[in-house]
């Protein structure tokens, strides 16, 4: 039987995240790799629950609650200050949701990446503003119900990973809360990059997506195995798929096991499946071209 490592020692127990929260799983897995010499930056969001309220905190590392649009800007200053102070072994980490990353935080992120500071930015993408009660973000997928898209979102999911690839960021990866070892390998790589590193983690949210909390990891794995969330990394300019499903599953199970996609009928799902297949094929081709 395969042995799984015990994870999550760098966060205290008894946190007030929702039952089945994948953001917490991601945070624990990330800090296991980064260790105690880490400064965590969280915006007002679900991750701020880890930073705590009142006199309590979840992190066993120093943390700072940033403004929603400014995680990467704070990281820039901390990173450069440690550089001038001669402190070289501290990981400066921004940990923000999709709203704080692809919407209001995009300018600061893009600026910090362009300047090339040494910091790690991990976006846990639960595809809406969950902490304020499920409002649409730029990362909400088409068709998804939120409290501000009551009849389903119109328009695509904003592809911030492609934007950062276009900026030539030294290390860029997608990851999933359902593939923790893959994520941890990526965190380990990000830690050693002498510049900005970005990891975009698909993070299912039972509260906002309307599924049973025990299904969180399954939901994350379904997205990857259906070709809806491919796992890859771009180091320098080299693209590599880090996980290849033996055969892609139909997308129906992923969509039909969540309550948020009722606006999508079967023909819409057929279209989504076709797009996912085509997109995955393109990535596979690119992977083979760049990795022999």
């Amino acid at each position: 039987m395969k042995e799984y490592p015990v994870i999550g020692q760098m966060l205290h127990n008894g946190l007030t995240t929702c039952e089945g929260c994948s953001m917490e799983i991601v945070a624990r897995a990330m800090l296991d790799i980064l260790g105690p010499r880490t400064v965590m930056l969280t915006p007002p969001s679900c991750s701020a629950i880890l930073t705590g309220a009142g006199l309590e905190t979840g992190w066993k590392v120093p943390s700072f609650m940033s403004n929603l649009e400014a995680v990467a800007a704070y990281a820039s200053g901390i990173s450069e200050a440690y550089a001038i102070l001669g402190v070289e072994d501290v990981n400066v980490v921004g940990f923000a949701g999709d709203g704080g990353t692809v919407d209001i935080g995009l300018q600061a992120l893009s600026g910090a990446v362009e300047r090339g500071h040494r910091f790690i930015y991990v976006c846990y993408d639960n595809e809406a503003y969950m902490n304020t009660g499920i409002q649409r973000s730029g990362a909400t997928p088409p068709g998804a119900w939120t409290t501000t898209t009551p009849s389903g979102k119109i328009g695509p999911k904003k592809d911030v990973v492609a934007m950062l690839a276009a900026q030539g960021i030294p290390y860029l990866a997608t990851a999933s809360a359902g593939f923790i070892e893959d994520f941890q390998r990526k965190v380990r790589k990000a830690k050693d990059i002498d510049g900005p590193a970005y990891i975009h983690v698909h993070a299912p949210c039972p509260t906002g997506w309307r599924f049973a909390p025990r299904q969180t990891v399954n939901m994350a794995r379904l997205a990857v195995n259906s070709g809806l969330w491919p796992l890859f990394e771009i180091t320098g300019h080299r693209f590599r798929l880090t996980y290849r499903p033996k055969q892609l599953l139909p997308v129906g199970e992923y969509f039909r096991s969540q309550g948020r996609f009722s606006s999508l009928d079967d023909s819409a799902l057929d279209l989504v499946e076709k797009e996912a297949r085509d997109s995955y094929e393109r990535l596979l081709k690119r992977h083979e071209e760049e990795n022999g």
Partner: peptide, 9 residues
């Protein structure tokens, strides 16, 4: 380690 500038009740 401490949390700086957290949500304050």
């Amino acid at each position: 380690p401490a949390a700086i500038n957290p949500l304050t009740t």
